[in-house]
Nucleic acid binder design. Sequence first.
DNA 1: TAGATTGTTAATCGATTAACAATC
DNA 2: TAGATTGTTAATCGATTAACAATC
Lengths: 210, 210
Amino acid sequence: MEEKEISQAVIGRLPRYFRYLGELKDEGIERVSSQELSDIMQVTASQIRQDLNNFGGFGQQGYGYNVGHLYEEIGKILGLDKEHNLIIIGAGHLGQALFNYMNFERRGFIFRGIFDNNPAVCGQQIRGVTVRPMQEMERFVRENNIDIAVLTIPKTSAVEVAEQLVSYGIKGIWNFAHVDLNVPKGIQVENVHLSDSLMKLSYNLSTHIY
Amino acid sequence: MEEKEISQAVIGRLPRYFRYLGELKDEGIERVSSQELSDIMQVTASQIRQDLNNFGGFGQQGYGYNVGHLYEEIGKILGLDKEHNLIIIGAGHLGQALFNYMNFERRGFIFRGIFDNNPAVCGQQIRGVTVRPMQEMERFVRENNIDIAVLTIPKTSAVEVAEQLVSYGIKGIWNFAHVDLNVPKGIQVENVHLSDSLMKLSYNLSTHIY
DNA sequence: TAGATTGTTAATCGATTAACAATC
DNA sequence: TAGATTGTTAATCGATTAACAATC
């Protein structure tokens, strides 16, 4: 049950706070003021305080914020204190790249399986895990309590596969397919549209040449 | 020379317009009104008209927009009518995945080379192209008129490598390293912070469970 | 012409920044 | 206590939506 809806603009900034606080923590720094954070992160101190106060008063007047404590609290807000069970759908280059990237697992995002509908790929081993055929998805999702599916398949099949996954009980989709998924309310979709990102870069390049 | 600065919020929506218009075009649809686009894209017709009118009047009263023409115009705005020469720095799984993804090339983003500083990887072939050692970067960038570098290296070396690339004449960086790059004014950076994206998904999952 | 739909101005809404009283 | 810095309210800024006159 949530108190009040927090804007996605705020949520979008939390991972960056989390990253900088982690770095300060690693450097052994114990306390930080919103002004100091402002200086290194290039956002206003006011915004930092506003953002954090959406979730409660983590600071102390005259002192600032305790780095370790704030780091941990933001981690909790982001749900990093819980484990998530993921599967990857699509064992192409991108799917394999994500599957191999260990840093996600350190944050509690555990890849439990990887699927593909190409018989030539099924059975192959990636990081000691066998690529499974997509017919086994439903059973696997239900038996392994999978809550997040990573879609690294072509846009042509993504919409249909997403619907299937939702019907199997998936709660979140990390979508790398270049298509908008249509999912029921309550199912979370986070899109990573790489070509959109590249186009933005292209736009900014073409307008900032003097 | 630019007329007035256009907000990144608007720019961020252009690739999506472009995608939907491309689909309409492929379906053989010739004209579309802002209201029709609104219905299929789930944004207000008002926003569509406002966004487009930042760049000029592409429509016609009483008629709407010509799909093919608008598609082409947005493509031009995004700089997709020009070719970009890219190199990838970091021939790990992600670098290879991007290098292998042909759809970028269809939009004019041509991967000219891929580099790595691991001697075991250098010399390997990817799509018929040899992975080069990073010592060759400078010469390659200058000789091949490279304007965009894709950073798929660990955060530890990303900041330094970015600085080098800028000094070699790179104009844009597509940054997959989980660190903020500090580049001179006029150099464009587009970040793809995958773990930030995953954290946002995690947040939304944890708050939308009823 | 009448109908439709844009381009654009005005109104609203939300997000960011500034200011300052509360308080450690 | 005096100084520092938060938490929070108020002011500003920008982005989105609504409305409508212009016009095809």
